[in-house]
């Protein structure tokens, strides 16, 4: 995944089955953000792997005041990259089991 300056990680163990997973997002390099970033720490949230869209969560974070609108794309991409990795690992685990 591209280093966007925004880090997204699992906030809980992934059992590979539950549709929703807790993720944690924080800024590692605020120089990579366009908007003025007020240090807010790590933001934990739940993401539905089957139904939800990363960019929508990023927009909710902007609307909640965590990020500037100009950084919605960067935040959305960071979430998308992590979600893709989680899904890839799940598929690999299933195919290995088969």
């Amino acid at each position: 995944a591209e280093d966007t300056g925004v880090r997204v990680e699992l906030a809980e163990e992934d059992d590979g089955k539950k549709p929703s997973i807790a993720l944690k997002l924080w800024v590692e390099d605020h120089k990579k953000l366009k908007g003025k970033y007020k240090e807010s720490g790590a933001i934990e949230f739940t993401f539905d792997l089957e139904k939800e869209i990363p960019e929508n969560v990023a927009q909710e974070m902007v609307e909640s005041g965590f990020f500037h609108e100009s950084d919605a794309k960067t935040v959305g991409k960071s979430i998308r990259d992590r979600v893709a990795l989680i899904k890839w690992r799940r598929e690999r685990t299933v195919s290995a089991a088969l």
């Binding site: 590692e28 720490g41 790590a42 933001i43 934990e44 949230f45 909710e60």
Partner: peptide
């Protein structure tokens, strides 16, 4: 440690806590 909580109008809960310790040392 300080933990804050923001609930978006769409209902999603965002829980804010300090950046994980290990990551701070990496920076």
């Amino acid at each position: 440690c300080a933990t804050a909580q923001v609930v978006h109008s769409a209902g999603r809960r965002f829980i804010v806590s300090p950046v994980p310790e290990a990551r701070l040392k990496e920076q």
